Simulated assay, not measured.
Amino acid sequence: MNYYEHHIGDYAEATAHLTFIEDATYSRLIRKYYATEKPLPNEIKLVQRLINARSKEEKNAVVSVLNEFFTLTDDGWRQERCDHEIARFKDKQLKARRSAEGRWQPLPSDEPQPEITPSNACVRNATAMRTHCSPDTKHQSPVTNLHTPGKQNNGGEKEKIPQGPPTPTDEEKVFQGRIEKYKSFAAMISREGRAIAVDDYRIRDIVNLGVTEDEVAEAIATAKETRMKVSNPTPINAGYVLAILKGARKKAEAASADEDAWWKTNEGIDAKGRELAMKAQGSESYESFKTRIFTELRKRKERAETKEKSNAS
């Protein structure tokens, strides 16, 4: 891509809270993204090298911007808006190519050529599609009894009256629920900050996070409080709210992961031992007890896999 649309208003709203260097870093990252038409490398050092980030402040800005505006995947650091614009660009290219190919594509040799006569004036246009332009084309006479009460077109039988509206499917219910969330979140942000359209991609991203109205309200309050602390009069925007929600979600996921990491604390090791009906032996250290627990877990997993394979065979 040698060209991409830069929506100044959208960009300004999403990046209003960034420092000067972070803003410049984000701009360089998305330009590189569009130029290569693919995600940025997984390794942050390679990303820093790609945009020539040399000083410590510049390198730190790369880390901050990646974590806030990009998502780390197996393919690399992805940016949803960039992916959307690249897909739209490629779709336009494909449609233009197909249109050009179809416009001048000749007819197959075995297809009979239409004769141009007064009674059947068919011609070919540049799209290789037939257009019927005969002045003798007969139109069907209008039927006047189509809307006669209690009648049908074919013989005057009474219409069957539908027994109420059809029950919506589960997919339709889910879709309607998402539409309601779009409207609700857009209204909440518009009331407290900058107005935003229901179909804005940032509203879609907020909905995709699976957050509730309470979480959005809390993020809005956090955004307003943060702006007040630094005496920033700029109204909050959807990009800032989205960034706060993403940060809160990451913290929640990290906290959940820490809770599951039973081996990190003595209390967790004791709890796991009780769960497996295991006890520390005499003056056994927690490190040794933890090793025995891991060994027992591995054995149980192997037994379960062996049993599953035997059942399958």
Rank of each mutant, 00 (worst) to 15 (best):
E85M: 12
L72E: 07
D91Y: 00
K181S: 03
E13S: 11
T73A: 02
V174D: 06
R292D: 12
T25I: 02
R98A: 11
R97A: 06
I293D: 07
E37K: 10
Q163H: 15
V216H: 06
S141K: 04
R194Q: 10
K250N: 15
E5C: 05
R202G: 00
A219F: 09
D23A: 08
Y34Q: 04
Y182L: 02
T222V: 08
M1T: 06
K90M: 05
H84F: 10
N237C: 10
W77D: 00
T169V: 06
R204Q: 13
H7D: 09
D258Y: 15
K45W: 03
L72D: 04
Q140F: 08
N67K: 13
A254G: 04
Y201Q: 06
F175V: 11
Q152R: 10
G193R: 01
A280E: 11
L72A: 06
I196C: 02
P235Q: 04
A100F: 13
S288Q: 13
K279C: 06
A261M: 15
D200H: 10
H6C: 07
R303A: 12
D74N: 13
I44M: 09
F20N: 09
K264M: 12
F89N: 04
T137N: 13
A61P: 05
V62P: 01
S141L: 04
E57F: 15
T127H: 13
Q281W: 15
E68N: 14
K309D: 09
S190M: 01
W104V: 07
D200V: 01
K181F: 01
R204L: 05
S231G: 12
E111Q: 12
G282T: 03
E85N: 07
A96W: 00
E80S: 11
R178Y: 12
G164P: 03
Q152E: 08
L146A: 00
A16F: 14
E225Y: 07
L146I: 04
T265F: 02
A252H: 09
I269D: 04
E225H: 08
K272T: 05
E267V: 11
C122Y: 00
E302M: 12
F20I: 08
E218F: 07
V47N: 01
K301E: 15
T295S: 15
Q113E: 14
E215I: 01
S99I: 03
L245W: 06
A277V: 06
T73Q: 10
H132P: 03
I244D: 02
A304R: 09
K246N: 08
H147K: 10
S285G: 08
A312N: 10
S310H: 01
E215C: 01
P108Q: 03
E302W: 02
A219K: 00
L50R: 09
E218C: 02
S310M: 09
E213Q: 11
Q163R: 14
T212S: 12
I86F: 04
D91M: 06
Y4N: 02
E267A: 14
I8Q: 13
T148S: 05
Y201S: 04
E305M: 14
E157Q: 10
A121C: 03
E215K: 02
E37R: 14
A126W: 15
E80V: 11
T131E: 12
Y4R: 11
W104G: 04
A96E: 08
E275V: 03
D270L: 11
P166M: 05
G164N: 07
Q113K: 09
T25K: 07
A126K: 14
E85I: 14
H139F: 15
N232M: 04
E284W: 13
G76K: 09
F294S: 14
R202W: 07
P142W: 01
V207T: 01
N232Y: 11
